[in-house]
Design a protein around this nucleic acid. Structure first.
Length: 237
DNA sequence: ATGTCGCCTCATAGGCGA
């Protein structure tokens, strides 16, 4: 993490699935990064790191006062609204967790539509826990029974694109198979590139016009004791 | 169905979420 920050030196980093009660802000302060985090014990958790000043706008997704999961962080950095999300996984299908995933997306959609109708440039990034299309997984049949691949969440993801948001990676790499951001730990899934593309950047039209590049950095996933995800990087002009 | 992790606790094993 420290090594990646120092070698890549991103202006901003969005983190998800922190799984801890306290975010080690001082560690990152020493590396030159301001940070804002929303955490809870054991589960979830999101943080934004930035070399530039961060203005926190919201720490919860609108639409459900009862929802206490640490999954959402909306900030302003250098005139861009940056939204970091950790969308619910939703497994198994048919469970309360699946319904929570759909309900969460049913709150995200109108919120993103409101942003879409404002002038502030907006970028929404994070772990969407949605495999958008067949091309975004190694073998569709292997994911048929998984919440990440169900018609309902995929339709909601497509609705975001229909609103005018651009899938940064896919827009620059149309039709490229085998491009994934997550591989589970089972059966050497990474070594065989049996993965899924579930970490996304969605850009409003104004930000999309500034899209320079978007790529997946595989190196961190190759290391000892890696995360099951690997970073996706977006460069804006 | 299973495989593998990491975090938590009525804790050193098992449950849970991923």
């Amino acid at each position: 993490m420290r090594q990646w920050l120092q070698s890549q030196s991103p202006d901003v980093l969005l983190l998800q699935e922190l799984k801890g009660p306290e975010f080690p802000a001082l560690v990152f302060k020493d590396l030159g990064y301001e940070s804002v985090a929303v955490t809870q014990k054991a589960y979830n958790g999101v943080a934004v790191l930035s070399k530039h000043p961060i203005e926190t706008v919201n720490t919860t997704l609108a639409g459900d006062e009862e929802d206490s999961h640490a999954r959402f962080l909306e900030v302003m950095i250098e005139g861009i609204r940056m939204v970091n999300i950790y969308l619910p996984n939703g497994n198994p299908i048919g469970s309360d967790k699946f319904l929570y995933k759909l309900a969460w997306m049913d709150r995200l959609l109108p919120q993103m539509n409101r942003w879409r109708n404002e002038t502030t440039p907006t970028l929404v990034g994070g772990d969407f826990n949605v495999i958008p299309e067949d091309i975004d997984c190694h073998k569709p049949s292997a994911w048929m029974g998984d919440a990440l691949f169900q018609p309902e969440p995929r339709a909601r993801y497509r609705a975001l694109l229909a609103m005018g948001y651009t899938d940064a990676f896919r827009s620059l790499h149309p039709g490229e198979p085998g491009k994934f951001t997550f591989w589970d730990y089972f059966r050497q899934a990474f070594e065989h590139n049996r993965g899924i593309r579930i970490d996304h950047f969605l850009l409003c039209p104004r930000v999309a016009t500034r899209l320079q590049s978007c790529y997946i950095d595989l190196e961190p996933r190759r290391k000892e004791k890696p995360s099951d995800h690997t970073p996706i990087v977006v460069e804006l002009r």
